[in-house]
Amino acid sequence: MTDRTHTTMESHPDILEMRERHALAERAASTPQGQAVEALSLLCGLYLAASPWIAGFNGFSTLTVNNLITGIAYTLLLSGFGHAYERTHARAWAAALLGVWTIIAPWVVAGNVDTTRTVVNNVIVGIVALLLALAASAAAGKTDRTDRGRTARMAR
């Protein structure tokens, strides 16, 4: 007769790994740095979406639509920092590309930009967005390295 070991779902190795990952993500997202990056990213994305009306350059209709869409996309990419922490690294790099796009958009989208406030607004917001995305990526990378080190120690 074969001895079968019955395992419950609670003791399955994949479940245990997922729980450990979730606990690590929650700890990282609950740090002041993680909360600050998430909150500032949310504000940055919302400001980018509303900036044509706040800074007063809504005369450039293509740039207005561009900033609205880019701001919403940026906000969605970096909001929920802790809920999808294992995917934050890839999302942060996509958000960094949106930050770079925000910097160059006045020249690419609007063509010959006459308004200084349009350029200044997009360059400043783009730099802030890029720096916040890089901070989120660094935090996610740090968590991944910590997780890999913990997994290697558990395997020994």
Rank of each mutant, 00 (worst) to 15 (best):
G34W: 12
L46T: 13
F57S: 07
M18Q: 09
A84W: 03
A110W: 07
R4G: 00
G45E: 04
R21I: 10
L46R: 01
L68N: 01
W93M: 14
P52E: 10
R19D: 09
N121V: 10
H89N: 14
I103K: 11
T116F: 08
T8N: 06
M154T: 08
L42C: 02
L77H: 05
R150D: 03
T5D: 14
N67T: 01
A133N: 05
R4N: 08
T116E: 11
A110F: 05
P106N: 03
N58G: 11
S61A: 15
V37S: 01
E86L: 04
Y47F: 15
R153E: 12
A25G: 12
A73Y: 11
T146L: 05
A135S: 13
V125N: 12
R153K: 12
E20K: 06
A36E: 04
V119F: 02
G80F: 03
M18P: 00
N121C: 15
N112W: 02
T8P: 00
I69F: 13
I15S: 00
T88F: 05
A92T: 06
G34D: 09
I54W: 10
R4D: 10
F60D: 06
Y47G: 02
R91S: 11
I104N: 09
T70C: 07
T2M: 10
H83W: 12
D14A: 13
L24M: 15
D3Q: 14
G59F: 06
I124N: 02
R21W: 09
I69V: 15
V113N: 07
A138E: 13
I103Q: 11
R150L: 09
G126K: 05
T151N: 00
M154P: 00
D144Q: 06
V119I: 13
I15K: 02
V119C: 03
K142A: 12
L77T: 05
F81C: 10
F60Y: 14
T88I: 10
L63P: 01
G80H: 07
A110C: 03
I127F: 08
I127D: 09
I69K: 04
G80E: 08
A25C: 02
T102H: 08
A23N: 07
T115K: 11
I72S: 07
R91W: 03
L98Y: 02
D147F: 06
W107L: 12
T75H: 11
C44R: 05
